Amino acid sequence: MRCSCCQKELIRNLTLRELFCSASLRCYHCEEQFTKIDHATACVGCGRKNSVKLCRDCRKWQQTSGFVLNNKSLYQYDEGFRKWIEAYKFTGDYRLRGAFATELKQALRMYRGYLICPLPLSKERFKQRGFNQVSACLALTKVPFEMLLQRKELSPQSEKTREERLLMAQPFKLNVESEKIRNQRVLLIDDVYTTGRTLFHGAELLYKNGAETVKSLTFAR
């Protein structure tokens, strides 16, 4: 059995929990690289750590958009997560998609009854990368999801500054008939919550087309 993160052989006795959760089994070294966010002490709007009240950014989103996303994030975006996302997303090591499949599946249990929607890539970006980094992780959880949104052909987020991200035009259009989401609860899933602009664009479009509630879940914040 290999570590789902570094791919090195695991040579240790496994607990029952590890045996049943082997889809995201990490070695001790890799386990130490990820820092979980304590939701009890995080901003209820965006998941920012150590911000019990609605943080300043979320108060601004509430004023401009009229809602907050109630975003939950699995991990902090620290050095350990940065190394993982660079190897997985930008280098294209598809084997790393299972690094936290068990934790992701556990988090999704809080959203029973929601339509699960990973944020899409543009056709050009998907062609370059060969996979959607979010839906590839989701597929390992066996939880059904649907691409409710389609991304327009715009320049990638990673090439934009914070200010440019916040001013970005709507990058999405519906990929389904509006009846599909009318009066439904939707959970948007992305890899990293940075400014929140992309997730808010997705939520705004879904609300505009009749969604009852839109929340988000990200791998890191």
Score class of each variant (00 low, 15 high):
Cys3Ala: 11
Glu159Leu: 09
Ser22Trp: 06
Asn71Pro: 02
Arg221Gly: 04
Leu115Cys: 04
Leu14Cys: 07
Leu119Pro: 00
Thr102Arg: 00
Tyr207Glu: 03
Leu115Thr: 01
Lys83Tyr: 03
Lys208Phe: 08
Arg97Gly: 05
Ser216Leu: 11
Phe172Gln: 05
Glu204Ser: 12
Asn70Asp: 11
Arg125Phe: 04
Thr198Val: 10
Val52Phe: 13
Cys5Gly: 02
Asn70Thr: 05
Leu167Pro: 00
Gly92Ile: 06
Ala169Ile: 07
Leu104Glu: 03
Phe67Val: 10
Val134Ile: 14
Cys27Val: 07
Lys160Phe: 01
Cys43Tyr: 03
Gln76Thr: 13
Leu121Thr: 01
Arg112Ser: 15
Ile189Gln: 02
Arg97Asn: 07
Leu14Gly: 08
Thr102Asp: 06
Leu19His: 07
Gly113Tyr: 05
Ser216Asn: 09
Gln184His: 09
Leu205Gln: 08
Leu187Gln: 07
Asp93Ser: 00
Lys36Ser: 12
Tyr193Pro: 05
Leu140Val: 06
Arg2Ile: 12
Asp78Ala: 15
Cys58Gln: 08
Ser178Pro: 03
Gln150Pro: 00
Leu205Gly: 05
Glu18Leu: 06
Ile85Ser: 14
Tyr75Ala: 13
Asn50Ile: 06
Lys127Cys: 05
Ala87Phe: 04
Lys83Arg: 14
Ile189Val: 15
Thr194Arg: 04
Cys55Leu: 12
Arg112Asn: 12
Ala101Cys: 02
Lys215Phe: 01
Tyr111Met: 10
Ala23Met: 07
Tyr75Pro: 03
Ala136Gln: 10
Gln63Thr: 15
Thr102Glu: 02
Ala40Pro: 00
Leu104Phe: 04
Val143Ser: 03
Ser51Cys: 13
Pro171Cys: 12
Phe131Val: 11
Ala40Thr: 14
Leu10Gln: 02
Arg26His: 04
Gly202Met: 08
Pro120Val: 10
Arg129Trp: 05
Cys30Gln: 06
Ala42Thr: 06
Glu164Pro: 03
Ser178Met: 14
Thr91Ser: 10
Gly47Trp: 04
Leu69Ile: 07
Cys21Val: 01
Thr198Gln: 03
Cys43Lys: 07
Leu96Cys: 03
Leu74Asp: 06
Asn50Tyr: 12
Arg185Ala: 11
Gln170Ser: 08
Gly80Cys: 11
Lys89Tyr: 03
Phe90Met: 09
Trp84Asp: 02
Phe20Asn: 08
Arg56Glu: 14
Leu69Asp: 01
Phe100Ala: 14
Gln33Lys: 13
Leu19Gly: 09
Phe67Ile: 13
Glu31Gln: 14
Lys53Gln: 13
Ala139His: 05
